[in-house]
Design a protein around this nucleic acid. Sequence first.
DNA 1: GTCATAACGGGACTCCAGTTTCATTTGCGC
DNA 2: GCGCAAATGAAACTGGAGTCCCGTTATGAC
Lengths: 207, 207
Amino acid sequence: MTDEGAAPGMLRPGGRTARVRTAVLRAAEDALIECGFDGVDLAEIARRAEVGKTTVYRRWRTPQVLVADLLVDMAEQSVPRTETGSLDGDLRANARLVVRTLTDERQGVLFKAVIAAATTDQRTAEALHRFYATRIDEWSPCVDQAVERGEAPEGTDASEVVRAVSAPLYYRFLVSGDPLNETVADESAHAAACATRAGAYVRRSAR
Amino acid sequence: MTDEGAAPGMLRPGGRTARVRTAVLRAAEDALIECGFDGVDLAEIARRAEVGKTTVYRRWRTPQVLVADLLVDMAEQSVPRTETGSLDGDLRANARLVVRTLTDERQGVLFKAVIAAATTDQRTAEALHRFYATRIDEWSPCVDQAVERGEAPEGTDASEVVRAVSAPLYYRFLVSGDPLNETVADESAHAAACATRAGAYVRRSAR
DNA sequence: GTCATAACGGGACTCCAGTTTCATTTGCGC
DNA sequence: GCGCAAATGAAACTGGAGTCCCGTTATGAC
């Protein structure tokens, strides 16, 4: 092992390095929104970020890795959760937020690009999974509260319910291409609430 | 309209053209499975198909268009549907089939590649949507039969139920990265059945 | 069988994404 | 503020994906 005191090989994440990172991530986000994932060109991103292209290639190597880094950044920004006081209301609020995000001109394209990147690279996929794990954890409490209020059976797996709300929306977004709108959001939330009340999401260990 | 008898400009889809198409589609399928979508190289596919690369570039132009053509081909191959005699059983059979497909070494990679291609190209996306519309239509009858047996309420939207079974599975496959196995399949089918019985998928026009 | 031409194929060519080189700047420990 | 190495940047370089040209094959109408 090369274990020296004031060793070479130590990182130096101070001022400039951090500035370059944020500049490149911003440029990458813009580029993804404008061109989609396959339109991304690291040299072009370097130009936009006003950074040498060598730097971008050296630090991130591939578009996938850059997207993975962007996802780490995105996961840190939290979206406030609305509380309506009922399971149906909370799930509906969540479903509508998802639909608004996916149908938003900029965000929808960005999410498609990010998901496309994740299908072709394991590390990007892991970053994506962590991103959604974060989002799901943020919304789970509304199901736990419903359990406390007696709206849902004891032992209900909160994150499973939250996933059930999003799943049909992402299925339409990525796979079937069926329309996404507020009605669909409400129906998805309602179906999840029905299944929850029927005990479909009670953890097996608690049955 | 250019309606001539023995006109120039007419297609000639006979023997050789068709042979080249199937050879290239087979090679494309293999390449997608081995390298994923971003690893696809039209020249490489031409080599495998023992076809001039000029031909591949001329007829399909981009990997996305080639994948779209492959999807048209895949949509034509029908998968037999199992009938168990109960809504829960039929939906479970469907869910298990989907999980088996997505977790299969070859098919799973192929589906990821195809979905990735669809996120970056409109025409590929349309081919993908048609592919799933076909699959969903094939499974819808089992829900209609359940309605006839009185297991599900009158006016239930069969294709909506079938989508509801697949959605959580594809969500895990593409977005959250949570595990896919037979237990998950059964739970997804059960949740869809619960929501169906609760009337969550009754068409609005029929309520 | 004959002919016109759609479709294919080999190979040279182009162009640019990605790499390498090396000089310059800047963070950071003292 | 001094010095060293981490980090960046400009420019030259390279390899291969995609295009072009033009001769060859073989389909389908007669």
